[in-house]
């Protein structure tokens, strides 16, 4: 009995492998980014709000 996971060979003999490879790769990236972001918090500008509110600032600390 043939066991199909995703592509049924519709895109060639390696389609199952490629699809699963991509899915596994992304899930590994997911795990790695979870671990990394758990260990390293994001770089956030922590400047208070400027006096001149009309100045063009790319960061606005939201309280």
């Amino acid at each position: 009995m043939q066991f199909f996971v995703l592509a049924h060979g519709a895109l060639g003999i390696w389609d199952e492998l490629i699809f699963l490879g991509v899915a596994v790769l992304f899930l590994i990236f997911m795990a790695v980014s979870w671990v990394r972001s758990r260990a390293i918090p994001p770089t956030i500008e922590d400047t208070p709000m400027p006096d001149d509110i009309s100045a063009d600032k790319s960061h606005f600390r939201l309280d």
Binding site: V22, A23, F26, L27, F29, M30, A31, S33, W34, V35, S37, R38, P41, P42
Partner: peptide
């Protein structure tokens, strides 16, 4: 509270797979 950020960042990869 520190696990919220990692879950959001990790979720991005799953979201990409869903679109795929």
């Amino acid at each position: 509270p520190e696990v919220v950020y990692p879950f959001w960042i990790a979720g991005l990869w799953v979201g990409a797979l869903i679109i795929g």
